[in-house]
């Protein structure tokens, strides 16, 4: 599936995947909003992300110690959890989703902040990166999942998994023990060693473990990590993508 095609159906997908988030009362992104966001940031975010959003807060080093990932450097462009094409900045709903859900195993969910507070802190976070003042990125389209997965589809998903080399990092059975991982070849943009997701453990799916979240991760990649976007490769065959999604979900089926 090409980018243009994805864009064409993106809006409808956003309404589905982000339905629970876009209901939030989003305040206007102005100085007053950012000031309120700054106050929240200094209490809730600064200790990991640092006063300037560099990801160097006093508690940040300990999250992964000598390895990665470290807290997000908001000044850079490599945001992992996006619905936008690889290399682009996330849209506001992506940030809202991350703040709300947290990042499994790394960042706690801040659903305890009111929706307005979350939008305010997002407005402030965006002020660290001038790129957010430019044109808003357009989200890739995330179609609805097809009907229930079939055995044949999951078998095909396994074939796709091997065809596109997923096992090189995630391992033959999805434990995150692929050769590239075991050899320590997987680095993030800061040069820190990082581990691929354990696909047998849904709680470790950093971008979410729903079928659509996995689809999104495959299509957009995780910028700043070795996980690329497959939008220009497997993206042309939507059935293969969904088969792959269901195959990945099947790896963790027995542990749910």
């Amino acid at each position: 599936m090409r980018i243009h095609a994805l864009v064409a159906i993106g809006a409808s997908l956003l309404m589905l995947s982000g339905a629970s988030f876009v209901h939030a009362v989003k305040p206007e992104d102005n100085q007053a909003t950012r000031e309120k966001g700054k106050q929240i940031y200094e209490h809730a975010c600064l200790l990991c992300h640092g006063v300037d959003g560099r990801g160097d807060g006093p508690a940040g080093w300990f999250l992964s110690r000598y390895e990665g990932p470290r807290p997000r450097d908001f000044r850079g462009g490599s945001y992992k959890f996006r619905s936008t094409p690889s290399g682009e900045l996330p849209i506001d709903q992506d940030l809202f989703r991350t703040v709300t859900q947290g990042i499994s195993g790394h960042m706690p969910p801040y659903s305890g902040l009111s929706e307005e507070e979350r939008w305010q802190v997002i407005a402030y976070i965006k002020s660290f990166n001038q790129g957010f003042k430019g044109p808003v990125s357009i989200a890739l389209l995330l179609p609805n999942p097809p009907g229930p997965p079939s055995a044949a589809g999951i078998d095909n998903g396994r074939t796709v998994y091997i065809k596109y080399g997923c096992q090189n990092c995630h391992g033959d059975n999805g434990y995150g023990d692929g050769k590239e991982a075991l050899d320590g070849n997987l680095k993030d943009t800061y040069g820190h060693t990082i581990s691929p997701g354990d696909l047998t453990e849904r709680a470790s799916f950093k971008g979410g473990s729903s079928a659509q979240a996995i689809y999104r991760g495959i299509m957009t990649g995780l910028d700043g990590t070795p996980m690329p976007s497959y939008a220009d490769t497997i993206g042309g065959n939507d059935k293969d993508v969904w088969d792959l999604v269901y195959y990945i979900l099947s790896l963790s089926q027995e542990r749910q």
Partner: peptide, 11 residues
């Protein structure tokens, strides 16, 4: 509870 890891809070 917060689906995170020990080192979020500990040195």
């Amino acid at each position: 509870k917060y689906n995170t890891n020990c080192m979020d809070c500990h040195t």
